Amino acid sequence: MPDGYGLLHAEGEGGTRVTLATADVEYVRALAGASPEILAGLELPQDKFLSRAGWPDDWT
């Protein structure tokens, strides 16, 4: 059982919003500390995250 979960709220091209969840909290912390230049165009490993369309405030 993981010690917690990390969530990323991302925007794709055209403003598409997505929430990504992972049990790798340290990975999310590293991303949170990265500069915008590093994050621009970054492709995240799909096997590390579960994805859900929208951000939590979009969900009904």
Rank of each mutant, 00 (worst) to 15 (best):
M1Q: 12
P2Q: 01
D3T: 13
D3F: 14
D3I: 11
G4E: 05
G4R: 03
G4V: 01
Y5L: 13
Y5H: 14
Y5I: 12
G6V: 00
G6H: 02
G6A: 01
L7N: 08
L7D: 09
L7P: 02
L8G: 04
L8W: 04
H9M: 11
H9P: 00
H9G: 09
E11D: 02
E11M: 08
E11A: 12
G12P: 03
G12I: 03
G12K: 04
G14D: 00
G15V: 00
G15N: 00
G15T: 01
G15F: 00
T16E: 15
R17N: 03
R17M: 06
R17A: 11
T19I: 04
L20V: 01
A21I: 14
A21Y: 07
A21D: 08
A21R: 15
T22K: 02
T22C: 06
T22G: 06
D24I: 00
D24S: 08
D24H: 12
D24L: 05
V25T: 14
V25N: 02
E26Q: 11
E26R: 09
E26M: 04
Y27K: 10
Y27R: 14
Y27F: 15
Y27S: 10
V28S: 04
V28K: 05
A30E: 15
A30H: 13
L31W: 08
L31H: 08
G33C: 02
A34Q: 13
A34W: 10
S35I: 04
S35N: 08
S35M: 04
P36Q: 06
E37R: 13
I38W: 09
I38Q: 14
I38T: 15
L39P: 03
L39T: 04
L39F: 02
L39N: 05
L39I: 03
L39C: 06
A40Q: 15
A40T: 15
A40V: 05
A40Y: 10
G41M: 08
G41L: 07
G41P: 10
L42G: 05
E43W: 10
L44V: 07
L44M: 07
P45S: 11
P45N: 07
P45F: 10
P45I: 09
P45T: 11
P45C: 08
Q46C: 12
D47T: 13
D47P: 00
K48W: 12
K48P: 00
F49D: 07
L50T: 14
L50P: 06
S51L: 14
S51T: 15
R52Y: 08
R52S: 13
G54T: 11
G54F: 11
W55V: 12
D57T: 13
D58M: 05
D58F: 07
D58G: 08
D58C: 06
D58Y: 06
W59L: 07
T60A: 15
T60I: 13
